[in-house]
Design a protein around this nucleic acid. Structure first.
Length: 168
DNA sequence: AATGACAGTCCCA
DNA sequence: TGGGACTGTCATT
């Protein structure tokens, strides 16, 4: 019953470097920060990619550029990350945070109805496969500390500075 | 099946 | 300032 989930990887060029976007037939499932290593998979593979996915990718690239220049994206691609129920609720809450604003781990915990699962929220943020578009970088600790970031704290600070969040 | 380690936060001393 | 309790998930045993 489960056909092998065909995945497509496409490069998205932005002012902050080249991200790699992964798509399933349901939408964007993963986004990778620019690798230090050279890009080995240029977009010419796109010829074999369904038009639907190319269209989604155009939206992704545009949304990334908008966020990375300090704005809110006018459109987002469909996103279909895989995760537990808990993680999906956390990620949904993250998407409600506009550019330039932050929430604490405990605020997210309260928003999803698990006010005491603050630490678990940190875990779910770390498991977010679509950084930037699902803005886990806008979650900081209650005491204004930056917390952690699976993509590396340099990226978290860079994203917060782009959004002109004071203190970072 | 149990344990330990985490991107946190609160409480009590 | 520091230790303990609490949460969900994953790796290890």
């Amino acid at each position: 019953m489960s056909s092998s989930p065909r995945l497509y990887e496409l490069a998205a060029n932005t002012p902050e470097g080249t991200f790699i976007a992964h798509y399933s037939e349901g939408g964007l499932v993963e986004l990778n920060f620019p690798a230090k290593a050279k890009i080995t998979r240029p977009n010419h593979l796109a010829k074999t990619v369904p038009p639907q996915i190319l269209a989604w990718h155009a939206v992704t690239e545009s949304a990334l550029k908008q966020i990375l220049t300090g704005g809110n994206p006018s459109r987002l691609p469909p996103m279909a990350p895989t995760g537990t129920e808990f993680q999906c609720r956390v990620w949904a809450a993250l998407r409600q945070i506009p550019s330039g604003q932050t929430k604490s781990y405990s605020e997210i915990a309260r928003l999803i109805g698990r006010p005491q699962a603050v630490r678990a929220v940190g875990g779910a943020c770390g498991a977010n496969p679509i950084p930037v578009l699902v803005p886990c970088h806008r979650v900081i600790a209650m005491n204004q500390k930056i917390g952690g970031f699976s993509g590396g704290l340099k990226w978290k600070r860079r994203l917060l500075r782009i959004e002109e969040v004071s203190g970072f």
